[in-house]
Design a protein around this nucleic acid. Sequence first.
DNA 1: CCGTACAATATGTACGGACATATTGCAACC
DNA 2: GGTTGCAATATGTCCGTACATATTGTACGG
Lengths: 255, 255
Amino acid sequence: MALDRSNPLPLWAQLESDLKQRLDAGEFDERFPTDHELVQQYGVSRHTVREAIGHLNRSGILRRERGRGTVVNRTEFEQPLGALYSLFGSVESSGAVQRSQVLELREDINPTIATQLELAPDAPLLYLERLRCADDQPLAIDRAWLPMEVARPLLTSDFERTALYDELEQRCGVRPNAGWERIAPLLPTPEERTLLDMRRGEAAFFLERLSVADGRPIEWRTTTIRGDRYRFVSKFEQGVAPAMVASANPATHNA
Amino acid sequence: MALDRSNPLPLWAQLESDLKQRLDAGEFDERFPTDHELVQQYGVSRHTVREAIGHLNRSGILRRERGRGTVVNRTEFEQPLGALYSLFGSVESSGAVQRSQVLELREDINPTIATQLELAPDAPLLYLERLRCADDQPLAIDRAWLPMEVARPLLTSDFERTALYDELEQRCGVRPNAGWERIAPLLPTPEERTLLDMRRGEAAFFLERLSVADGRPIEWRTTTIRGDRYRFVSKFEQGVAPAMVASANPATHNA
DNA sequence: CCGTACAATATGTACGGACATATTGCAACC
DNA sequence: GGTTGCAATATGTCCGTACATATTGTACGG
């Protein structure tokens, strides 16, 4: 566990990198070492340890308190990422009651999506379609396709009571940790309009998402979201990076 | 310039705050002091100076290089912020040629918008409407309202050749440094569809923006953006905050 | 068993010193 | 005027010391 002092990379950077790997490997799930322990383990000064941890903690992944020590911030691991997280997070923080109504849960064949998931075109997929509501008002139609070889146990899950990612982790031992999303405006189909209680002529957001677990694509998802109940809002200020979040209470911002 | 050692706030935090104020006041536009100078000026150790600067520089506002010193990062000041910046930035980085066609430039009265700008309902406004194109293909319709008492000189500006914020700063001495934006999906009007060369049934993004300069609202803007040429794309990875950017080349992401 | 006091634990703040590294400026030489 | 070498300048890295502050654990007394 000694760092390479002939490496041009500073000691703190090497230490940060090592700690990151150990952290990602789950080595600190139970307990994170104290500054003093790291000093001993790595043979560097406390200053160097603190520098490394300071950089590692840029993303807020650790919580450090005097007298208490350092703990891995659990919410980081539990966080489904991206706009969907932002959306449902904002619904939750608004105090609204969230509900899902399962519209479909079955085995499916879809060559296009199978290809997206790097599967054979005829590979069986688990298809889950839900109507997402906040305060009993429809908010979004959520459609997810997962490789059946990973997700078969979910055919018997109750998605009106549990979250997809929680079930995926508990019953299949898989959790997404990377991916991408894109968002476009869309005119919903008549069926969608009915489900979402939208009027003709109203547009929606169409969100597509590919989730990846340890380098492997495990979910393709589309979400059609009412545009009148979901806005992106961004505040900006000079010298501070803009933060773009989803808001599920657009009325908040009516002037 | 001595810090208050009886204040419970750590010295580095007081120093950071003081430097921030001086920086915002433009005191470091010509030159930022060296570590050594700050040690002398504030009567603290270099460690404390570096700690304060480290925190101040979280937003990347400074550039520090060995042998060279510390410079205020100029690009921070020149950056129009938010999704619009992201959009036109991404058009520019794609190598596409941007053009604006001025559709309207006149004095206007609009009580709703005047109120948004914290003006009397009948206050005169400068109204600027442009068609924004990339590679001679329409991309967005941009509408901006500014208080006439600030922006009157712009009635004679040539907005096909210059950017609104540049003109605003050069001719009116004002530059936005805060504000907010929100984005919703929208079905464009027939006139808008014609301008943007969109088909019936295609949806667009509708962006609203309030820009503020030194606490005063100085611009209300709406931008209607073709949804087929503009997507939000987000990559995410565990432990790293998601970054949401606008993309003006959606074809890039077709799987 | 509960409350209080103190010790142990662990991070935060602040000082000082030394050396490495990169850039710029200046002087000397051709 | 251009090039080279060295000194000055300025930040980065790393070490060490000391004390403050907050939390947790333990022992003792009522």
